[in-house]
Amino acid sequence: MEKKQRAGKKAALLLLGAMVLAALWGCAARDGVRPGEQYLLYVGQKGQSLVPVAWEPPEGDTASAVSQALDALRDPEDPDGYASPVPEQVSVEIRDLADGSLDLAFSPEYAEMEKGREVLLRAAVVQSLVQIDGVSRVRFYVGEEPLREADGTETGYMDADDFVRSIGPALNSYRKTELTLYFADGEEEKLQPVQTTVRYSSNTSLQTLIVEQLLKGPASDGYRRTLPESASLLGVTVRDGVCYVNFDEGFLSQDYEVSADLAVWSLVNSLTESGDVHAVQISVNGETDVTFRGTVDLGQPFERNPDLTAEEE
C-alpha cells in the first residue's frame, strides 16, 4: 500500500509540474530579483502565472521567518501586477515544524478552490518557503486531514525537486552555497573576509556568482563595497586555473570609496578562495591593455595577495 501511495504521489506531482510549466517558465528573469536573492512567488495579473518578488527573510528562528513569509504571501505590500496566491477566504497557519519538515494547515475553504488556482497556490507556497533556512520540505493539511490527490492518495511532503523534475531550467533550479567574499573594512585599509549564504541558479557558475555578489556589495554594516555600482559584468570564464573576468567601462569609474589595490584584490582574493582558481585576469570591454585608475596594470593575471587581508596581519 505504501509503495502504491508513493507511486500515486509521484504521478500526481509530475502532473502538477506539467500544469505549472507554462506558468513558471521564464519568471526567474523578472526585473527586481537578482541572482542569489530570496523571493516569494505571487500570482500574475491574469491569474495564470507566478511572479517572483525579492524578499529578505527576517532575523530570528525558522518558525518566525515562515510566519512572516506566509503573512507576506497573503498580504503583499504595494503589489504591481501581481496578487496573493492564497485566496482571501483561505487561512493558513503552521501546524508543525521539525527537522526541516514543515506542516501547514489550511482552512476547509482550500478544498473549494478551482484546480488551476490550487496548483498555483501549491507551487507558490512550497517554492517560496523551502528557500528559508530550516525548511526543506512542506506538507499541506486541509482542516485536520492531509491534502490528497484526485485518486485519494496523500500528497505528502513536497520539496524543490518535485517541481524541478518537471520544469527543467526554470525558476526552481536553484541551489544554496556559502561564499567567502572580501570587502574593505571600515577604515578602508584592509580586506575582511565575509561569509554569506547565497541561493543561486544552477545555470550560474560559481565564479560568476562571486563577481555578482561583489558588485551587489556587502549586506552587513561595517564593510565597504569594493566594486562600483556602475560596473556591469560582461562575462566570466575559467581556463587552466585562470579566471577571466570582463567588465564594461563602468569598472573604471573613479567614484571609489577604497584604494585601487583593495578593489582589485577584493575580486582576486574572493575568486581564489576555493582553490579552484589560482589567478584572475581582468579586462574592460575585452581589453587588458588598461591601467586601472592610473596605478594598477591589468595586462597580466593577478594572484592571491594575503598581505591585504586583515585576518593575516
Rank of each mutant, 00 (worst) to 15 (best):
R148K: 12
R137D: 13
D162V: 05
E189H: 04
E187Q: 10
A111S: 14
S128Y: 05
P146R: 03
L181I: 06
A160C: 11
T196L: 04
T180N: 07
G156I: 00
A150T: 03
V130D: 01
L191T: 00
Y141E: 00
R139P: 08
Y182A: 02
N172S: 14
T197E: 15
E149S: 14
V164T: 01
V126T: 04
R137N: 03
E154P: 06
L206G: 01
V142G: 07
S136A: 14
V164R: 08
T177M: 06
E189W: 10
G143M: 14
P193W: 07
T155S: 11
R199M: 10
E187H: 13
A184S: 13
L147N: 04
S166V: 02
R122N: 08
A150Q: 11
F163S: 05
E118F: 08
D185T: 02
D161I: 03
A170E: 10
Q131A: 08
A184I: 05
R199Q: 12
T196P: 04
A170S: 15
E149T: 06
V125M: 12
S173T: 02
K190W: 09
L179G: 10
T153P: 01
V125T: 07
R148E: 12
Q207S: 15
S202T: 07
S201P: 09
V126D: 01
K190F: 15
V130W: 03
L206Y: 13
S202H: 11
T153Q: 02
A124V: 04
E112H: 14
A150M: 08
L181W: 03
L191Q: 01
N172Q: 10
L120K: 04
S166Q: 12
F183P: 06
D151K: 01
R175F: 15
P169G: 14
Y200I: 08
L171Y: 11
A124Q: 01
A160W: 00
I132W: 02
E114Y: 06
S128P: 00
F140C: 09
G134N: 00
I132E: 01
G134E: 04
E178T: 13
T153V: 02
G143P: 07
L129I: 06
R175E: 08
P169V: 03
E187F: 12
E188F: 13
T153S: 10
L181A: 12
L120C: 07
A184K: 00
Q192N: 05
S136H: 05
Q195T: 11
L206D: 06
Y157P: 06
Q195E: 15
S201A: 15
R148H: 07
V142C: 05
R137V: 06
F140G: 01
E114H: 09
D161P: 02
S201E: 09
D162H: 14
E154G: 06
R137H: 05
G168C: 10
E149D: 07
S201F: 15
R175Q: 15
L120S: 03
G143S: 07
T208Y: 04
P193V: 04
D151C: 12
S166A: 10
F183S: 02
T196F: 11
E118K: 14
L179R: 01
V138C: 01
A124H: 03
S128A: 08
A123T: 00
Y182S: 12
E149C: 14
S201W: 10
Q131R: 10
E114G: 15
D162P: 04
E145M: 04
A124W: 03
E118A: 15
F140M: 02
S205N: 04
Q192P: 02
A150F: 12
G116F: 15
D159S: 14
Q207Y: 11
S173L: 12
F140Y: 14
T180P: 04
